[in-house]
C-alpha cells in the first residue's frame, strides 16, 4: 500500500523541460466511499507535453483523467489549468471544459446527430461560431482524421474506430489547450486500434498537449514524452517511455509490465 514514490533523479522529463506548466495537480485526493482512489497526487504537465498514464485497472488513472475537467469531483487538493484553479460549477466550469478536450473510452458521440453536427455543436453553441464557418472547420478536421466521407451519417452507422476518430475531431473543434484521452482504444476491435493511434501520434507530432490513459505501449514509445505509472491511487513511478519500459524501478511496475508484455 505504501510504496514509496520513486522519482527519477534529475527528472529530465519534468514538465518544465517542455515549456510552461499547463496542467497542475497538487495534493489531489479522492474517495469512492471507503476506497481511496486518488492518494495525494502531485503532477505537472507542460505545454506541448504528451503524457501517458498507465497502470493496472482500479489504479485511479481514469479517475485522474476525469478529474482534470471535473467530470469527477475531488475531495481535497487543487487542480490548475493554465494557472487557473478548476471552477466549482456553472458558467466558469463550462468555460473551462470548453478549453479541455476529452475523448472517452466509449466514444459518446451524440447518437441523434450526424457526424458533422457532432463536430459543429460545440463551436456553434459554446463558441458562437457561425454555422458555415463551423461546418467548414468541421470538414477540415474530419478530413484530418480520415472520416470526411462519413460526415452525413449517424454515429451508429460508423465502425468503432471511425466513431472514435470523429470524437477526436469533435474535441479538436473547440481548439482545446489540452486533450484528455481516457482509454481511447480499449473499447475497439483490434483491427481498429491503429487507425485511432495513428491520429493520436499525428496530434502529438503537432505539439498538442495530451494526457493519455492507455495500455498501448507502442503509442507510449512512439509519441509520449513521459510515462506515469499509477497503482492503488498513487503515482508510483515516472520516466521517459524508453527508461520505463526497459528498466522499470518499482516492483509494482515490473510486475505490471511482465503481465501485459508476456502473453
Amino acid at each position: 500500500m505504501d510504496d514509496p514514490i520513486e522519482n527519477r533523479g534529475g527528472d529530465p522529463t519534468a514538465a518544465g523541460a517542455l515549456g510552461d506548466v499547463l496542467v497542475e495537480l497538487r495534493h489531489v485526493n479522492k474517495h469512492f466511499g471507503q476506497l481511496h482512489v486518488l492518494r495525494d497526487i502531485d503532477l505537472e504537465v507542460g505545454q506541448g507535453e504528451v503524457l501517458v498514464v498507465i497502470g493496472p485497472s482500479g489504479s485511479g488513472k481514469s479517475t485522474l483523467c476525469r478529474a482534470i475537467n471535473r467530470l469527477e469531483t475531488i475531495d481535497s487538493g487543487t487542480i490548475l489549468i493554465d494557472g487557473v484553479p478548476l471552477p466549482e460549477e456553472g458558467k466558469g466550469l463550462a468555460k473551462l471544459r470548453s478549453d479541455v478536450g476529452m475523448v472517452f473510452q466509449s466514444f459518446n458521440l451524440f447518437a441523434h446527430k450526424t457526424v458533422l453536427d457532432n463536430v459543429t455543436l460545440g463551436p456553434i453553441k459554446v463558441r458562437g461560431v457561425k454555422r458555415e464557418a463551423a461546418r467548414k472547420q468541421a470538414m477540415e478536421l474530419l478530413d484530418r482524421v480520415g472520416v470526411a466521407d462519413q460526415a452525413a451519417k449517424l454515429p451508429a452507422q460508423l465502425s468503432g474506430g471511425q466513431q472514435q476518430r470523429v470524437a477526436i475531431a469533435r474535441a479538436l473543434a473547440m481548439h482545446p489547450k489540452v486533450m484528455l484521452f481516457d482509454e481511447p482504444t480499449s473499447a475497439l476491435d483490434p483491427e481498429m486500434i491503429n487507425e485511432v493511434l495513428d491520429v493520436m501520434v499525428q496530434l502529438a507530432g503537432e505539439g498538442i498537449t495530451m494526457i493519455v490513459v492507455t495500455h498501448e505501449m507502442g503509442f507510449a514509445r512512439k509519441a509520449a514524452h513521459r510515462v506515469v505509472f499509477m497503482a492503488d491511487g498513487q503515482i508510483v513511478e515516472q520516466a521517459t517511455p524508453e527508461e520505463f519500459f526497459t528498466n522499470p524501478r518499482s516492483e509494482r511496475a515490473k510486475d505490471f509490465l511482465s503481465k501485459i508484455l508476456t502473453h
Binding site: N69, L71, A94, K95, L96, R97, S98, D99, V100, G101, M102, F104, S106, N108, L109, F110, A111, L121, G122, K125, V126, A167, R170, A171, M174
Partner: peptide, 11 residues
C-alpha cells in the same frame, strides 16, 4: 456518457 460528452465540450 451523452451528458458527460456534452459537458466536456463546454455545454
Amino acid at each position: 456518457g451523452q451528458a458527460e460528452a456534452a459537458r466536456a465540450i463546454g455545454l
